[in-house]
């Protein structure tokens, strides 16, 4: 019996890093959306929050797109 520790380790590390990046980015994007809502209610335009949100969600979408590409390839 042999355990392929290298393969298992790389699955773990890559999953850990990818999830950390995607969830963090998305959470920052959500925070941007929330900031925009608060700003608009206070009479501001909330552009900064919206910009952050759009940027973060775009990167997330790209990562998901890469995931779908991996499934198809």
């Amino acid at each position: 019996m042999k355990i392929d520790w290298a393969a298992l380790g790389s699955v773990f590390l890559i999953a850990l890093v990818a999830v950390a990046v995607v969830t963090s980015l998305f959470a920052v994007g959500v925070r941007g959306l929330a900031a925009r809502t608060v700003a608009r209610e206070g009479g501001g335009d909330g552009t900064a929050g919206l910009t952050t949100a759009v940027a973060c969600f775009t990167v997330c979408a790209a990562v998901v797109g890469y995931g779908v590409y991996l499934i198809m390839a």
Binding site: F12, L16, A20, T23, A27, V30, R31, A34, A35
Partner: peptide, 24 residues
Amino acid sequence: VAGLVAILGTFLVYKITAKARQDV
């Protein structure tokens, strides 16, 4: 593997959005 990864993911999500408007 999935459990440990999800612990980190959940922790980050709550940490980052803790002070934001909860309805949004």
